[in-house]
């Protein structure tokens, strides 16, 4: 079967610095894959390459077998690849609900559906779907607030809901647990389990090892832009190279 996402020998150089160095891996539909590595290992750069923000200096990206390395970010999003940001990037003048309404235009009905009486039924369904996503992340009672006024944990949840509103099949989550307290992290874990049960495919960058080991079926390890290991959590935990590069540094 064709993998949902495949990277073949992907590199990204910034001047003399090689941020991502000949990385190859693939993700099958329905997997929840962890991507770990020390700070500066190139995880966010890799996300930016997949999301179309950066063109790879070399290598191929394939989505369901189609080459997507040359597509712009809007087209990548329309193909069903959505992301969240390590540094939260909400729209400063938009309300909570508006974040989802705008993301929903990614696929399906266009920007002026509200004015088109022919699609008013579909439009109502879509608004209802947006409210349901807010319920999923526990923000339904704050839908009218300006999003950047929400507390930090709620902003992280809204970013996930916004990504889901694009109707993605692949979710790229960039450190969703960063800055969350223990209760919020448990909530996040439950949400990840729920998303997995709904057959979302997820690539998760995260520093919270307990979370990663618990929810991921497979883990990729990056160090200095290179993929140094790939395997089940139990294998990764005992992989000497990984322990040396990453886990060992903390022990």
């Amino acid at each position: 079967m064709t993998p949902l996402l495949e990277l073949r020998n992907v590199s990204k150089r910034f001047g003399g610095l090689t941020a991502v160095d000949a990385v190859s891996f693939s993700i099958e539909a329905g997997e929840l894959v962890g991507l770990i590595g020390p700070n500066g290992a190139g995880k966010t750069t890799l996300f930016n390459i997949i999301a179309g923000v950066y063109r790879p200096s070399q290598g191929q990206l394939l989505h369901r077998g189609d080459a997507i390395s040359m597509l712009d970010p809007a087209r990548i999003a329309k193909r069903g690849i959505a992301r969240t940001f390590q540094n939260i990037r909400l729209f400063q003048s938009l309300t909570v609900l508006e974040h989802l309404l705008v993301a929903q235009t990614c696929r399906g009905l266009g920007l002026l559906a509200e004015l088109n009486p022919l699609v008013s039924g579909a439009e109502r369904t879509r608004r209802k779907a947006a409210m349901e996503l807010l319920e999923l992340v526990g923000l339904e009672n704050r839908h009218d607030e300006i999003a950047i006024h929400l507390p930090y944990g709620a902003q992280r949840r809204l970013e996930i809901a916004r990504a889901l509103a694009t109707s993605p099949e692949l979710l790229l989550l960039d450190e969703p647990a960063a800055g969350l307290n223990d209760t919020e992290t448990v909530g996040l874990r439950e949400m990840l389990d729920a998303l997995r049960a709904q057959h979302y495919t997820i690539l998760l960058v995260e520093h919270d090892m307990k979370l990663v080991m618990r929810v991921c079926s497979r883990i990729l390890v990056l160090e200095f832009g290179k993929l140094i290991a790939s395997g089940a959590p139990a294998e990764i935990q005992v992989n000497p190279e990984v322990i040396n590069a990453y886990l060992g540094a903390e022990a």
Binding site: R89, A103, A165
Partner: peptide, 13 residues
């Protein structure tokens, strides 16, 4: 207007 790059990454051309 707020953030064209983030908007683009949510499918807004």
């Amino acid at each position: 207007s707020d953030d064209p790059e983030t908007a683009a990454q949510h499918g807004i051309n």
